[in-house]
């Protein structure tokens, strides 16, 4: 390759490089934008802080403040730490997905999405780059939680392999939820609003579930809601995987269906939305 003169800004329609085509282009462009989002991650102190501190705080507060009273309503032989860590993992990951909406809204507001859309790149790249990077971030959150969990007494009773499966399911659920957040981010187009809109509904979603307490301790009218909450379904699956090490089909299937269903509905919706922003 001949070196370009420094002051050479001249237009050129012939290039000594070529863009990949078709499916290869989707992976190529998605990978570059994933890189972009991952490189920015450690440069966003509030996100790192939120990602690391918040789960630690929740584990410590819930385990030591509520652990004593809630522990009594758990099945014999199950410690509150054993019960709590899988639940908090789901809760933290669900909350963590709201960064997807904020990130996309920021890119829209700052004109970065316009920049990417004016380049001859795959239409899916901005979304896939965002979601893949966010999924990596969520995996890190899950690992941090396991470490904190081990400090307060949580153990993979069923073995490390099932532990890995447990982390896999929690991250897969986060992936599916990220697509909802992507839709929110592209609709509100303003990072502050995206933060609020992405966040508020997560409180009822995660608290009306078995994340912190067994559903059986809730008032009777609330129990059906809590029991069918996908967050409960995922929490229960994670508990089966970490405590028993052998999930029942009846616990796995609804979670798989939720993950596929959420992605099948919200991913195409987000891609469609992206074309029109």
């Amino acid at each position: 390759m001949t070196s370009v003169p420094l002051d050479d800004l001249a237009p050129s329609s012939t290039h000594d490089y070529r863009r990949p085509r078709g499916l290869a282009a989707m992976f190529h462009d998605g990978a570059i934008l994933t890189w972009r989002n991952l490189v920015s991650l450690p440069r966003t102190p509030e996100l790192v802080l939120f990602t690391l501190i918040q789960p630690v705080m929740f584990v410590v507060l819930f385990n030591y403040v509520f652990g004593g009273s809630i522990g009594q309503s758990l099945p014999p032989g199950v410690s509150y730490a054993q019960f709590l860590i899988p639940g908090i993992m789901v809760q933290t990951i669900v909350f963590g997905t709201s960064a997807t909406s904020v990130g996309l809204a920021e890119d829209l507001q700052k004109g970065l999405v316009d920049r990417f859309r004016s380049l001859p790149i795959a239409r899916s790249a901005v979304l896939s780059g965002r979601i893949v990077a966010d999924t990596v971030r969520l995996s890190m959150v899950a690992l941090v939680l396991i470490v904190v969990g081990y400090v307060v007494g949580f153990r993979f009773e069923g073995g490390l392999l099932w532990g890995a499966v447990m982390i896999g399911f929690s991250v897969a659920f986060g992936f599916a939820m990220s697509w909802i957040m992507a839709n929110i981010g592209m609709r509100v187009k303003d990072p502050e609003t995206a933060n609020t809109a992405g966040f508020v509904w997560l409180f009822p979603l995660t608290f009306l579930s078995s994340v912190f307490v067994p559903v059986a301790t809730m008032p009777g009218w609330l129990q059906p809601i809590a029991r069918n909450n996908p967050v409960t379904l995922v929490s229960n699956l994670l508990r089966e995987l970490s405590i028993l090490g052998r999930p029942a089909v009846g616990t796995v299937l609804p979670v798989v269906l939720w993950i596929i269903g959420l992605t099948a509905v919200f991913a195409p919706m987000a891609v469609n939305r992206y074309r029109k922003v």
């Binding site: 290039h15 490089y17 990949p20 972009r36 920015s40 004109g111 790149i121």
Partner: peptide, 28 residues
Amino acid sequence: LTGQYAAVDEKLTGHENLWMVGRLLGMS
């Protein structure tokens, strides 16, 4: 296209912004 707002990623360096677009365009 250069718009009214500087459409660059603030968290990336100047070099990274340029490099990223070069890569997206198909450069090695």
